[in-house]
């Protein structure tokens, strides 16, 4: 098992290196620089380039960046008064994390319920209704839904604040907007998995033992259906956290996503790189954790991996 984890971490490192290299090169290929201000004289720009090492050839820059990265230094932001990128991320991650986890938590629970009910009421109005909801949830972009919520719930009804980040009630609308996609994905997946499991012979066996339906569904059905669902919850969480950038922008939440969008607009190289790497690390770690967890939930994998 330990061997397995180490090999996985090794692969993770390779993946991360490729992500860093590609985003570094892509960023360099973009036209413009952080110091695009027309009022800035050429000589001043050159001084700035020199100060931040932007005059060196790209491979050298990359080398410097990597060596700093290994030491945990993501550089300083060009735009925000030389503040370290790590610090900016630290300040900003809080709101994003709360938003993301709230959305995944709420979305997963509702999604599971919806999926299970749809599966149990297979081929009835309830099933079709849930399926239509799920399709809508996946096909309507979250920002459309966000605007809709802002207008109706926020402006028309005036129930909830539509922007900024000053406590729990401020997080409700963006959480809902973000959770819709999660609900839809989980519900669809759960429905399919549940249907599959309910058709298994061990469900029939359980019925032939005289057990009650609710017992069979919770004890024999859901657990087996959950196994494949857990694999998608990990990437879904990361996606939701990263995907929140649009929502953060719409609701003016000072999260990492909003910062990310801003840094791209201002060509703040260090901040773009820093955030990208942060997201990438998050993503691969979650996948690793899920894979390890998987073994604990599914006894078949536990034994095979443990020996």
């Amino acid at each position: 098992m330990i061997r397995y984890i180490f090999t996985r971490i090794g692969y993770m490192m390779i993946t991360l290196f490729i992500i860093i290299l590609l985003s570094f090169l892509l960023m360099k290929a973009l036209p413009g620089s952080p110091f695009n201000d027309e009022r800035l004289p050429e000589t001043q720009k050159e001084l700035l380039y020199k100060k931040y090492g932007l005059d060196k050839p790209v491979p050298v820059q990359f080398g410097i960046y990597l060596s700093n990265l290994v030491q945990g230094d993501l550089g300083v932001s060009f735009v925000f008064d030389n503040r370290p990128v790590t610090k900016i991320i630290q300040e900003r991650i809080g709101a994003s994390a709360i938003l993301g986890f709230q959305a995944v938590f709420v979305g997963t629970i509702i999604g599971l319920l919806l999926g299970i009910v749809a599966a149990l009421k297979h081929n009835t109005i309830i099933d079709y209704g849930a399926t239509v909801l799920a399709v809508l949830g996946i096909s309507i972009p979250s920002f459309v839904f966000a605007g809709f919520l802002q207008y109706w719930v926020g402006v028309k009804l005036g129930w909830l604040p539509i922007a900024f980040w000053n406590g729990f009630e401020y997080s409700i609308l963006p959480t809902i907007a973000l959770a819709v996609g999660v609900v839809a994905t989980i519900a669809r997946f759960t429905r399919i998995e549940m249907l599959e499991v309910l058709n298994q012979e061990y469900i029939l066996t359980a019925q032939s033992k005289g057990l009650s339906n609710s017992y069979i569904i919770t004890k024999h059905g859901i657990r087996n259906a959950l196994i494949p669902i857990i694999t998608i919850i990990g990437p879904l969480t990361v996606n939701t956290i990263t995907g929140s950038l649009v929502i953060e922008k719409i609701f003016s939440i000072p999260g990492l996503g909003e910062q990310f969008v801003n840094s791209i607009i201002t060509n703040d190289y260090q901040l773009i790189m820093g955030t990208t790497i942060f997201y990438a690390v998050l993503f691969v770690s979650v996948i690793l954790i899920i894979d390890i967890l998987y073994g604990f939930i599914d006894p078949r994998i536990r034994v095979a991996g443990g020996e």
Binding site: Q200, E201, Y202, L204, T205, A206, Q207, S208, K209, G210, L211, S212, K219, H220, R223, N224, I227, I297, D298, P299, R300
Partner: peptide
């Protein structure tokens, strides 16, 4: 019926590979 199933009349299915719940 539930009182009857398993207690008075019980059943053995064809495929032992699928008749048992793999996670229990």
């Amino acid at each position: 019926m539930r009182g009857l199933r398993g207690a008075e009349i019980s059943m053995i299915f064809q495929d032992p590979m699928t008749a048992l719940n793999p996670t229990m």
